[in-house]
Simulated assay, not measured.
Amino acid sequence: MSISAKDVKKLRDVTGAGMMDCKKALSEADGDMDKAIEILRKKGQKVSEKRAERDANEGLILTRISDDHKKASAIEINCETDFVARNDDFQKQANTFLDAAFDNDIESAEDLMKVEVDGLSVEKHLEQMVGKIGEKIEIARVVLVKTEGTLVDYIHPGNQLGVLVDFDGDLSDDTVGKDVAMQIAAMNPLAATRDGVDASVVEKELEIAKEQLINEGKPEEIAEKAAKGKLRRFYEERVLHEQKFVKDNGITVKEYLEQNDAPLVKSFYRMQLGEA
Rank of each mutant, 00 (worst) to 15 (best):
N87M: 10
Y154P: 03
D105V: 05
D82M: 00
D32H: 05
D68S: 11
N260W: 11
G134R: 05
E221D: 15
K50R: 11
I214Y: 02
A100P: 07
V180D: 09
G158Q: 03
C79S: 04
E135R: 02
G149K: 09
A262L: 08
T147S: 12
G274M: 02
D68H: 10
D105P: 01
R141A: 13
G196Q: 08
F102N: 01
L213M: 13
E216A: 13
D30H: 05
A209R: 00
V84K: 07
K228M: 05
N78Y: 01
A85F: 11
N188H: 10
E58D: 07
D55H: 07
K70S: 15
D168R: 10
R233Q: 13
D261A: 15
R41Y: 03
R232A: 15
I77K: 00
L257N: 10
M19T: 09
L60F: 00
E148F: 15
T175P: 08
D174L: 11
R194K: 15
L11W: 06
D99C: 03
L231D: 00
M1D: 07
G18I: 03
A25P: 00
G158E: 06
G158I: 04
D166E: 14
M271P: 01
G229F: 10
E275K: 10
L231C: 03
V130K: 09
V130H: 02
A52L: 05
V145I: 13
E242L: 14
N188W: 02
K35D: 08
I155V: 14
I106H: 07
D34C: 01
K71H: 13
V253M: 12
N78C: 05
K136G: 10
K43S: 09
K114A: 15
N104S: 14
E205F: 00
G16K: 02
Q91I: 05
D30L: 04
I3F: 04
A17L: 04
M129G: 06
M129P: 02
V253S: 11
N57S: 12
D248Y: 15
G149R: 10
V84M: 11
S48D: 02
D168A: 14
D118K: 14
E28S: 00
S121K: 15
E203G: 08
S48G: 14
E211Q: 15
K114G: 05
K92G: 04
K6A: 10
G44K: 06
M19H: 05
A94G: 01
E28T: 00
R232Y: 14
I39E: 06
H241W: 11
N78K: 01
K6I: 12
D195Y: 08
E258W: 12
